[in-house]
């Protein structure tokens, strides 16, 4: 593959085709006027055309590599966020947030205990109190 635009373009073409096929398979019918499938089909066709243009234009560009991802770092923060969100329902906002803040600050390189412990406790307390008592938005608690 010549460069990342070729890959992106082909991805859009595949997305467009898959979208059109999936929309057609749903067999949407309308009682009045246009079918509910019309707009999404139009969009998927347009996405496919954009992909085709992008692919064709990419052949005129210089050969270049794909963008680099730092997979390890990204997977770690995404994993931490996913666990934090899921666990919050079970152990409540306060405990999960303190643990998340401690872990993520450590992960980002802030290893001074005298900084991360008070910041985690104070930030959690401020956000919890603001949400619960000022904005009247209940956050999950352990005993819900």
């Amino acid at each position: 593959m010549k460069n990342s635009d070729t890959g992106s373009g082909l991805f859009l073409v595949v997305l467009g085709i898959a979208g059109v096929v999936y929309t057609r398979m749903q067999g949407f019918r309308s009682t009045v006027g246009l079918s509910p499938a019309f707009f999404p089909t139009f969009l998927f066709v347009a996405i496919g055309i954009c992909g085709l243009i992008l692919t064709l234009k990419s052949f005129k560009l210089e050969k270049a590599g794909f963008p680099k991802f730092k997979w390890g770092k990204l997977a770690a923060i995404i994993g931490m966020l996913a666990v934090y969100i899921v666990v919050m329902d079970y152990i409540g906002f306060i405990i999960s947030t303190i643990v998340f803040l401690l872990a993520s600050m450590w992960f980002y390189g802030e290893t001074r205990i005298k900084i991360i412990v008070p910041v985690s406790l104070v930030a959690t307390a401020i956000i919890y109190l603001l949400w619960t008592f000022v904005f009247n938005i209940p956050l999950p608690t352990l005993f819900l």
């Binding site: 934090y84 803040l101 993520s104 390189g109």
Partner: peptide
């Protein structure tokens, strides 16, 4: 290192 985790929360 401090701000990013707070933004996440």
């Amino acid at each position: 290192t401090i701000l990013t985790p707070i933004i996440c929360v």
